[in-house]
Design a protein around this nucleic acid. Structure first.
Lengths: 129, 129
DNA sequence: CCCATATCTGAACGAATGCACAGCTGTTCA
DNA sequence: TGAACAGCTGTGCATTCGTTCAGATATGGG
């Protein structure tokens, strides 16, 4: 964590004259406790997985389609090689964003609840602030 | 978009014998229309902004704290240089994830609705599938 | 006006990452 | 059993990206 608190000291000292506020150590402790509670589950892995164009397209395609899709259907839509598609789907699977089902020579993927919820959140706040 | 549809042709041909399904062109068109409707607003920019550890910490800190925080408070918690913090906050601002307010020599940031919704979605689906 | 301070900006360098290519596994069908 | 095919994996390369460093801008006080 950061240790240089001179600026924060001054800010708190200034705010003391305006309203309330406590001492620096206490303030930082409060903020750090908020910060530590973050990313209890692999949020960063999820966000990283979705932050690439290819993987984002695949994920939102799987979320938009109701029901699972075959790899060959997905490859037909994203314009990268089979290999890249497979890598991308593997990453999404590792992040818990898609499920994988094998059926003979075909393999089907589907979006998980987590994917849908995150994409919905983005959908619903489109155009705000 | 991808144009090699031989595999998809075969999949659809096989499914024809099992259940319903239409022709390849129609199928791809359906999927592409789903794909195109994605990312109408800068979803990728938002996801990219949140997919970095420093920016994620800043964003979730701002979302967790009720009300705005000063840059010096944020710098005290994330353990990177002032400059890196500033760069990170700038990126978050560009992505529409935080608001910026200037007050004298201090500058205050706050999380937007969009940030809170996305992080909530991740929170609420923690540990699923 | 000058200096200290808070924050931002541009450049540069090292690390991380997405992609294509080649080769591999496993399934289907003759 | 062997050919054809769906999909996965390892590797090298080109690009992107996060950070620090140095310097710029802007605010406040003496």
């Amino acid at each position: 964590m950061g240790t240089n608190t001179t600026r924060l000291d001054r800010l708190l000292a200034e705010q003391l004259e305006e309203c309330c506020a406590g001492d620096t150590g206490e303030r930082i402790e409060t903020l750090e406790s908020l910060s530590d509670s973050a990313d209890a589950g692999g949020d960063l892995q999820v966000l990283s997985a979705l932050s690439d164009d290819t993987r984002y397209r695949l994920a939102s395609l799987l979320a938009a389609a109701d029901g699972e899709l075959c790899v060959c259907e997905l490859t037909a839509v994203v314009d990268v090689s089979d290999s890249a598609t497979s890598h991308a789907l593997g990453d999404l699977h590792d992040a818990g964003l898609v499920t994988r089902r094998k059926d003979g020579q075909w393999r089907y993927y589907d979006a998980t609840e987590r994917t849908e919820r995150v994409l919905d959140a983005l959908d619903e706040t489109r155009g705000e602030r």
